[in-house]
Simulated scan of single mutants.
Amino acid sequence: MSVLIVIPARYASSRYPGKPLAELRGATGVSRSLIERSWHAATAVSGVDRVVIATDDDRIRAASEAFGAEVVMTSSDCANGTERCAEAHATLGGGYDIVVNLQGDAPLTPHWFIESLVQGLVSAPEAEIATPVLRCDGAMLNGLLADRKAGRVGGTTAVFATDHRALYFSKEVVPFTSKTYAEAEPTPVFHHVGVYAYRPEALAAYPSWPTGPLEQLEGLEQLRFMENGRTVLCVEVEARGREFWELNNPEDVPKIESMMAKMGLE
């Protein structure tokens, strides 16, 4: 089973231009770019044959090659990370059994999230794409709710069936719950972790499908699979005491730096 990890990265983010090159200071005071930290997260995953960064920007290419990453240049016409992964896989000549999309804004993604994700897809032959979900505790849920109240997109939530087939993903906090939870108490809300594992046939078909109304409304690329009747598997992962957050807005930088400091991550 051959596995390729692609880290899609673009400079022209509407919410945070230049985000892949944003500097994050670790526990020892060492500053590294977001894209470098995401690349280190990818290279820590076991059972992976190749890791590449896919971008259309020469600034990201130069920075990535400077810290030793392999870079695949892709078109500026790619609408999202999945389309960029599809182009990168094709440019490399294909041939991988599973392609993992580790988005370049999730440097705190633990290696076991991706290892569990790949194993989940291997074990579910009916699924064409798999993605991790993490049960929120009270503290994480409160953070998501606070972001939405302030008008920020702080993360994506997922709901799924008993067989873990995805039912919906949203930038709103779903499902609704009126209960107040203690910080360490588990909640019924699952945070979607922005990583995907695709079977190559579904990945190759994805760019040819039209963007549907749900993808347009939510701005979530995985909804295109669902709107085209493809099975998306939600793989529940365990935090194991590790804090996790994605860098969506400039305001997330100190939050992520604080998490790295508490975890002792350089």
Rank of each mutant, 00 (worst) to 15 (best):
Ile53Cys: 07
Ser14Tyr: 11
Met1Glu: 10
Arg25Cys: 08
Arg50Val: 05
Met259Ala: 11
Ala124Met: 00
Leu34Met: 08
Ala161His: 02
Ala42Leu: 00
Trp209Asn: 05
Lys149Tyr: 06
Leu220Ile: 15
Gly264Pro: 06
Ala130Met: 05
Pro213Trp: 00
Ala261Glu: 12
Pro207Ser: 13
Tyr196Lys: 11
Ser2Glu: 13
Pro188Cys: 13
Ala106Gly: 03
Leu117Ala: 06
Ala106Val: 14
Ala204Arg: 14
Leu34Ala: 04
Arg32Asn: 12
Glu218Ser: 01
Val159Pro: 00
Met73Glu: 13
Thr211Phe: 06
Val189Lys: 02
Gly29Asn: 09
Glu218Thr: 07
Thr231Met: 07
Glu185Pro: 07
Gly143Tyr: 07
Arg15Tyr: 11
Ala261Pro: 04
Thr74Pro: 06
Phe169Arg: 01
Glu185Tyr: 04
Arg224Met: 07
Ile114Asn: 06
Glu246Ile: 12
Pro250Ser: 01
Ile35Tyr: 12
Thr187Met: 11
Phe190Asp: 00
Cys136Tyr: 01
Glu172Phe: 05
Gly143Pro: 00
Thr187Phe: 10
Ala12Phe: 03
Glu243Leu: 13
Arg10His: 14
Arg32Asp: 10
Glu218His: 01
Arg240Ile: 00
Ala44Gln: 05
Arg135Lys: 13
Glu246Met: 15
Gly93Thr: 03
Ser38Arg: 09
Leu233His: 02
Ala9Cys: 06
Thr211Met: 15
Gly81Asn: 08
Ala41Thr: 07
Ala12Ser: 15
Gln216Lys: 15
Ser208Ile: 03
Phe176Ile: 13
Cys85Lys: 00
Tyr11Met: 14
Gly212Gln: 09
Val118Pro: 01
Glu221Gln: 12
Pro17Cys: 04
Trp245Val: 11
Pro250Lys: 11
Ala202Asn: 01
Ala90Arg: 13
Leu134His: 06
Ile5Cys: 05
Lys171Leu: 02
Cys136Leu: 08
Glu221Tyr: 03
Ser208Leu: 11
Cys234Glu: 06
Arg135Asp: 08
Arg135Val: 12
Asp252Gly: 08
Ala86Ser: 15
Gln222Lys: 05
Gly18Phe: 10
His191Pro: 00
Leu108Ile: 08
Met226Lys: 05
